[in-house]
Computed example of a mutant assay.
Amino acid sequence: MNVPVELLAFAGVMALGQFSPGPDMLLLTRTALKEGAKTGVIMSWGIATGLAFHAALAIAGMSVVFERVDWLRDAMRWLAAGYLIWLAYQMIMEWFVHVYSGAVFEEPQATTAKSAYVQGLMCNLLNPKVMVFLAAVTAPFLAGARPDWWPWALWAVVVFEGLTLWALWALVLQVKPVREIYRRAGPWINLVFGITMVCLAIFLVAG
């Protein structure tokens, strides 16, 4: 086993998976644009905490049980869909108030650190597809004879990448031209994000 090569391969697959479109990316993108780098980075910590939990269960083999217990899987899907709908409602209402009140769009003060962390955590934690994805990705890298520490090396890669890449994404979104676009079209961007959240919720329940 070539440890550096396998870890790099695993890290590459995980990076692609984490940056695929989904609830985590959508929520973090909108939050970092709306409320700034600090709130976005704190939210990324919440997302990484959720990933740490999912990765531990996937590596421990609990994803098999999760997939076979239909009521548990379905309950998690409905909880996740409900949470996404609630987030979408908040985004769409911001657009509605702006358009129908004629108010000037202004970026509100950032939410508390605790609130941003909890939103990121819950968005990731309630999504059952995260554990299924992690189980599918880690399975080939767990096959065969491995040292005892190997599964937890994979877990560390998942958590470290989740924390650093999401935090970097929140910082990248602070580039002045990007911020200016959001300042000008914020309500409409919120509307698009809100509708996309609804679509993700429907896809999650139907999947």
Rank of each mutant, 00 (worst) to 15 (best):
N190M: 12
I92Q: 02
R179V: 07
R184M: 09
A156M: 10
K114G: 12
A15S: 08
R184Y: 13
W149E: 07
W86D: 12
A37P: 09
R146K: 02
T138K: 12
T111G: 15
R183K: 15
N2T: 06
A167K: 06
E94F: 10
T49N: 04
V99G: 09
W152G: 04
T111D: 14
L125P: 13
W149L: 12
A32W: 02
G22A: 08
M62T: 13
M1K: 12
V99S: 14
Q174V: 00
L79E: 03
G50W: 01
A103M: 09
L204I: 08
A48R: 01
A88S: 15
N190I: 05
P147L: 01
H98S: 09
D24I: 09
M1V: 12
G120Q: 04
V69D: 05
A113E: 13
M1E: 11
F66H: 05
E180Y: 09
L72D: 12
L57D: 07
V97A: 14
I92H: 01
M122Y: 13
W45A: 05
G12I: 05
I59T: 11
V130L: 08
I195V: 15
G186K: 06
T164N: 03
F19T: 01
A55Y: 06
V97W: 12
R73T: 09
Q119N: 15
L51V: 09
L51Y: 02
A60G: 12
W95E: 08
F141D: 04
L28I: 04
A60R: 07
T138G: 05
R30C: 01
I195R: 10
A139T: 10
A201G: 05
F133G: 11
T49H: 04
A145E: 05
R77Y: 02
E94Q: 15
A167I: 03
V69N: 00
A113T: 14
G46D: 00
L126G: 00
S44T: 05
V65Y: 15
S63E: 09
L165S: 05
I202P: 12
P4F: 10
A170E: 02
N2P: 15
T29N: 06
I85K: 07
G207L: 04
W166V: 04
A145Y: 06
L165Q: 04
A185W: 15
P147C: 04
W150F: 11
V137F: 00
W149I: 14
T39E: 11
F160L: 15
P177T: 03
V132K: 00
V132I: 04
R183C: 07
G17M: 14
E161D: 08
Y182G: 01
A167T: 03
S115P: 10
L163P: 11
W71K: 05
W95D: 05
P4M: 06
L168C: 14
E94A: 11
V69R: 01
T164R: 02
L72K: 11
A143F: 08
E94C: 11
F133A: 00
Q119R: 15
T49R: 05
V159H: 01
A9P: 13
L51N: 00
G61W: 01
V157E: 00
L126H: 06
M131S: 03
V192T: 08
I92A: 03
F66K: 06
G46N: 10
R179W: 02
F66C: 03
V192Y: 08
T196Q: 12
P21H: 05
